[in-house]
């Protein structure tokens, strides 16, 4: 083989690989190693007595997890928050996008206004809503009696607390749905909509047969991203209730944080983290399989 060809081949493939190798190593060190180490920890026992020691403990942590009432409570709280919050965010986001897209007066102003909550940090949102929900000094409970309604223990009533948390999540993250769906809506060719209108399609039919099917890819992305995020919810709950009253608002991540970093039971904390990872993985796969089927139906 001529020398120039060898050099050319090296430049083309091996040099390329050599250049990306440091990035791959860094990526492996920063992501894969901690991931595998956490997985290892979930089968181990960490002891601080006599210095840091890690021993293999088999399935002990996993058996403890599956017999822990707090785990099932945290799992059901987390899934409930995710299902209701993401569904509401999607419905509200879609409705607002359709309104904004109709070119109502001041739509640019509203578009900017709607995005503001999303730009706040969850901690700030948590403190803001904690003040809003304050039973004696909060504005919501100040207004309710003026309307003839009783004051509500938004963050202290076991039957209400999860819905209060869901409300704050909807308030903050509906704009994300708006952002994604608005981009999806903008990508629909105007000619297609015009042609349908010329053919006499009504507003509802236009939405049902053209807009919604074409928004499905954007909807899947938005719902999936939000679901993954909400399943990891911790910051707002930490500020709003700390997981209380009782453990009625404890999420999976807060449960893991409490055991792993407050109680320093690191092995069990890692087990909780991995169970959350598995939950997210399963829910995401089920969701993608379901939506793939619905995409196929809509394309048919």
């Amino acid at each position: 083989m001529p020398m120039t060809n060898i050099l050319s081949s090296f430049r083309g493939k091996k040099a390329g690989r050599a250049f990306i190798l440091p990035a791959v190593i860094i990526l492996l060190l920063l992501t894969i190693f901690p991931f595998l180490f956490s997985l290892f920890l979930s089968f181990g026992k960490v002891s601080f007595l006599g210095g840091l020691q890690i021993h293999f403990a088999g399935l002990k942590n996993w058996l403890r997890l599956f017999n822990d009432e707090r785990f099932y409570n945290a799992l059901s709280n987390t899934v409930l928050i995710a299902v209701i919050a993401v569904a509401m965010e999607y419905v509200l986001g879609l409705g607002l996008v359709l309104l904004l897209n109709r070119g109502v007066k001041g739509s640019t102003f509203f578009r900017v206004l709607f995005f503001l909550p999303m730009m706040l940090t969850p901690i700030a949102v948590g403190y803001m809503w904690r003040m809003m929900f304050n039973p004696t000094r909060g504005p919501i409970n100040h207004v309710l009696p003026l309307l003839g309604l009783p004051a509500v223990g938004w963050l202290t009533e076991p039957k209400i607390v999860l819905y209060s948390i869901i409300l704050t999540d909807i308030w903050q993250w509906t704009p994300f749905m708006i952002l994604i769906l608005f981009a999806g809506l903008q990508s629909i060719p105007p000619a297609l909509l015009e042609a349908a209108k010329v053919d006499g399609a009504s507003g509802w039919r236009l939405f049902r047969e053209i807009i919604f099917p074409l928004l499905i890819p954007a909807s899947i992305a938005a719902i999936l991203l939000r679901t993954i995020e909400v399943l990891k919810i911790v910051d707002k709950i930490y500020i709003l209730t700390g997981g209380g009253p009782g453990i009625y608002s404890e999420s999976m991540t807060l449960f893991g944080y409490s055991l792993g970093l407050r109680a320093f039971d690191l092995a069990y904390g890692a087990t909780i983290a991995f169970s959350l990872f598995a939950t997210i993985l399963v829910i995401s796969i089920i969701f993608l399989l379901m939506t793939r089927r619905s995409q196929e139906i809509s394309l048919e």
Partner: peptide, 17 residues
Amino acid sequence: RYFEALDAQLAMALAGA
């Protein structure tokens, strides 16, 4: 670790659970 375990149980008692 002891405190955390107690804390969760106290919270449940205070919440009436």
